[in-house]
Design a protein around this nucleic acid. Structure first.
Lengths: 209, 209
DNA sequence: TGTACATCAGTGAACGCGCGTTCACTGATGTAC
DNA sequence: TGTACATCAGTGAACGCGCGTTCACTGATGTAC
């Protein structure tokens, strides 16, 4: 990926570079697939600018990575909300959210890695970014479970928060295992994901009479 | 961690260093908590030997890391098998395996990270190591589920392999989320893990009449 | 019983690398008078 | 309407770092005769 022809921003339009940097970092992150493989130098080259220019807009590399993550979280949340909105049945909505969750992870494994499989230290240092975007996504997830609870679909004794975490953990589990242990002899993937959702919901919803 | 006083191995006892290297690497991995933070140089220093000596026993760094992993897998499998053996009820055994699984991950987060949350590329390159130790652990897990199936405890239509993966994914999910998102406002941990196991089993086992 | 020698365990110094980051700078751009 | 000047966007060169790995070597140790 070589340098694009880039014209210097006009006076007062310095913020333009910030967006270009995030775009380039996002592309590199997705294509190379490794946070460590995406260097300041590589990003600068992709934008068509010298490395020090990055520091005009980001305090350090970590801040840049998290700016990218913030965006990924918004996309992620958008996808799940969209999947949710395709049905009126709150239990079916949970299933569709779950499948969309896994699909996002498998289609954007590197973003997913940083968002949900990173080292907590770096996560801790950027809680504000995470709160805004990741927090929103979790709030939406919890709201979806609450709708199922309000519809009387959950078993007696199952708390919405507990159910929300259970669903999250299960879908995160299968998604991250598929990402990390790609060479494990998994059964057919689509069927596997459907089964996961199915079994998870069976634990939560009232048995059909 | 500075160099221990070390006496050169006697003729024919060169293999002793190999064990010392693995020991040191294991300690560093557990204490510093990051695969990348454990350098060949640091390991050599901890053993009390110069960096090139490492290459007398390992082809490269990755091979060394995986030698450490192999050991961790054996410990891991031993813990789960031991937990299993504390009861005769095959369903209760699954619960105890699950709780032991999470406990292992939370107590050895760095080993866990490498074993189950790494990049698949490096996993692929060391499938033999993984087959021997990780494969054994999964085989034992599957056998435990099979015992529950043989006892007629599983719902009709639930395949042992499907159930085994479901349990693994769920426990891996909650374990790895607790590791990676340490600052998320999780409910009380022990209760959370018990709930996870409980809900998972509820999805799999026949309802009490 | 003594000695030459092959072998083995480990060393010392250096290789080239790419990294994040800093610092003093330049040159275009808009603005004030 | 023209020009001096502050400001802003970005540069070029270098910093120090630690890394994995290689290569030619050394010196102790056991063995054969």
């Amino acid at each position: 990926v070589s340098a694009a022809a880039r014209t210097r921003a006009r006076r007062g339009e310095g913020e333009r570079l910030r967006e270009e940097i995030i775009d380039a970092a996002e592309r590199l992150l997705v294509s190379t697939g490794d946070e460590d493989a995406v260097s300041i130098r590589a990003i600068a080259q992709a934008v068509g600018v010298t490395p020090p220019s990055i520091y005009l807009h980001f305090a350090d590399k970590e801040s840049l990575v998290w700016a990218v993550c913030g965006r990924q979280f918004e996309i992620f949340d958008g996808i799940l909300e969209a999947a949710d909105a395709t049905t009126d049945d709150p239990v079916e909505a949970l299933r569709r959210r779950g499948e969309a969750y896994a699909r996002f992870g498998l289609e954007h494994p590197e973003a997913y890695r940083i968002m949900f499989m990173g080292r907590s230290m770096s996560v801790d240092r950027h809680l504000d970014t995470l709160d805004k975007s990741g927090g929103t996504a979790f709030t939406h997830h919890l709201a979806a479970v609450q709708r199922a609870a309000d519809a009387g679909a959950l078993r007696a004794g199952v708390e919405p928060l507990q159910a929300a975490i259970f669903l999250w953990a299960g879908m995160h589990g299968i998604t991250s295992l598929l990402i990390s242990l790609a060479s494990f002899p998994w059964p057919e993937r689509d069927q596997l994901l459907r089964d996961m959702c199915e079994l998870q919901l069976r634990a939560l919803v009232e048995e059909a009479p």
